[in-house]
């Protein structure tokens, strides 16, 4: 410390002061509610991140941090429904409008988030999730036995470790990435976004990955039990996963544009559909 130059000392003090100033402008509020099983929690945040975490117990804890006095946070409980909403006290955008939400919920609660700019994250849940954002990046992981509905305009979407899920993803331009996602129903629709699926497609379910022009990349282990078909109407398909030819595929197979077949007992139905994109299926 003694050898430190005066210049460095000064800037350290300055940084300290800045931190205090920034801290003073931040206003952290905490709301706590007790709910019964099957509660529903809705968060609407025009600007800024929303983080959802499932936990044991019957408490909903909402921690909201505002960064200016131009916005405020409203939370209320109506029986078993909790609503948290950002309100603008004056018209503003940019950093002033931002609110950060951290929300702890019982893992069986159903949660709806609307956060146009995001990012939105949700983890450790067993209740239904409906997540929406225009440009929001959406990240969902460690979820089981739940509906997961995600909709974005341009935000990228990533799901990991979803078991027994009813997954429905719709995005216009967001890239979609699924790692170890399985369940009775998994459907992904995008326009220009790419779709990557890495996993084994579970043990009996319907998987439907559809886009207009992005790439669809699927990587699966040899142990996967699938009844798989792929078709790109004006684009191309590539396959290096061993499939047994089907006697009666659902559509006429065109070399380079489509293929279909089964592996193992063909438990899960997997349909890959692109209008003009490239579809690639690989063995892991």
């Amino acid at each position: 410390m003694g050898r430190m130059s005066n210049g460095v000392k000064c800037s350290l003090v300055a940084v300290g002061l800045l931190a205090v100033a920034a801290f003073a402008a931040d206003n952290r509020k905490e709301f706590r509610y007790t709910v019964a099983p099957g509660a529903s929690v809705t968060v609407t945040n025009e600007s800024g991140p929303v983080e959802i975490k499932g936990s044991a117990g019957r408490q909903v804890v909402i921690i909201a941090t505002t960064h200016s006095d131009k916005v405020e946070v409203d939370c209320d409980q109506n029986r078993n429904r909790i609503h948290a909403t950002t309100h603008f006290l004056q018209r503003t955008d940019g950093p002033d409008s931002r609110v950060d939400y951290q929300v702890l919920v019982p893992s069986d609660a159903s949660v709806t988030v609307r956060a146009p700019s995001g990012p939105i994250t949700a983890e450790k849940m067993r209740g239904d999730l409906t997540l929406e954002g225009d440009a929001a990046q959406v990240d969902v992981h460690d979820v089981s036995n739940a509906h997961v509905h995600v909709r974005t305009i341009s935000g990228p979407i990533s799901l990991g470790n979803i078991a027994n899920g009813h997954v429905e993803i719709t995005s216009l331009n967001g890239d979609v990435r699924l790692d170890a996602v399985s369940g009775p129903r998994v459907s992904v629709n995008t326009v220009k976004g790419s779709i990557r699926y890495n996993g084994d497609f579970g043990e009996g379910g319907e998987y439907l990955l559809v886009n207009h022009s992005g790439n669809i990349d699927v990587t699966l282990p040899a142990s996967a039990s699938v009844d798989l078909s792929a078709r790109s109407i004006t684009g191309s398909v590539e396959n290096d996963f061993p499939l047994q030819q089907k006697q009666h595929p659902a559509f006429a197979i065109t070399q380079g544009r489509s293929f279909a077949g089964t592996s193992n007992s063909g438990a899960s139905s997997v349909q890959l559909r692109s209008l003009s994109g490239k579809i690639r299926v690989k063995k892991r």
Partner: peptide, 9 residues
């Protein structure tokens, strides 16, 4: 219950 995808399909 069938998965909803199938219902929609």
């Amino acid at each position: 219950f069938r998965p909803q995808a199938a219902a929609v399909l």
